[in-house]
Amino acid sequence: MTDPILKGPILKVQGLNKHFGGVVATDNLDFDVEPGEIHAVIGPNGAGKTTFVAQIAGMIKSDSGSIMFDGGEIAGLSAHARSRRGLARSFQITSIFKEFTVIENVAMSIQAHDGHSFRFWRRANTDPALMDPARALLDRVGLGARAEIVASNLAHGEQRQLEIAMALATGPKLLLLDEPTAGMGPEDSQSMAAFLRDIKGEYSMLLIEHDMDTVFALADRITVLVYGRAIATGTPEEIRGNDEVRAAYLGEEA
């Protein structure tokens, strides 16, 4: 699928718009993610960050704009088709299969990318083609010991880890992470940040995050979103030194 001649950003968003009634959620947004890079999006509450992720992932249809991913236009595709192209997301509000075991949750992601599922007869939860890679992935994110536990019984921090594991299990080219540390205590947050640093370079990432320490430690580039508009994009140092950003956002925090 990758066009060898058009080497460039893995994700390139141009002129993206979304209105809800009279409210502008995304305002003519341009955005890109280079291969292997972590591009973070920050902004005050209500800036339209989650809407932006949902638009890229295909849960919300955009009013207009282009979303080029891995050399192809995906703006018209459904969420599941985008996932098949190699786009994976995690949710700000934990979205897992609560009634299933941890390993079944991950196996579900693997199954989604292992051909069609019109397979009616063989047992799925003993199928090594699903369970072996699921177990390997759980070991990697540190949930190996919790594999057989029903997901709803996991602690909050563990559920957030599972959330990421399910995204990784789809074998993505780009990860859309919507506040991976949401609701976590400082200790869990730090281990999540450490994990993300660990897989950095392996995956391209669009990271939405509230915790500034995490963002400035991880991101290669940062875009500041205010009322659906990108007011600045740059390296962490450039963003720190940007007066407009300071006025609109960081100033408030300080």
């Binding site: 459904s78 969420a79 979205s95 299933f100 799925a124 699903l130």
Partner: peptide, 29 residues
């Protein structure tokens, strides 16, 4: 019994549990 526990059954049960997530991980439910 076979259906419920097959890959097909996992998709069906997964979609009962959380259809949005199923679509997000790539299932045309």
């Amino acid at each position: 019994w076979r259906l419920i526990n097959s890959r097909f059954g996992m998709v069906i049960r997964g979609s009962q549990s959380n259809d949005d997530r199923m679509q997000a991980i790539g299932f045309p439910t």
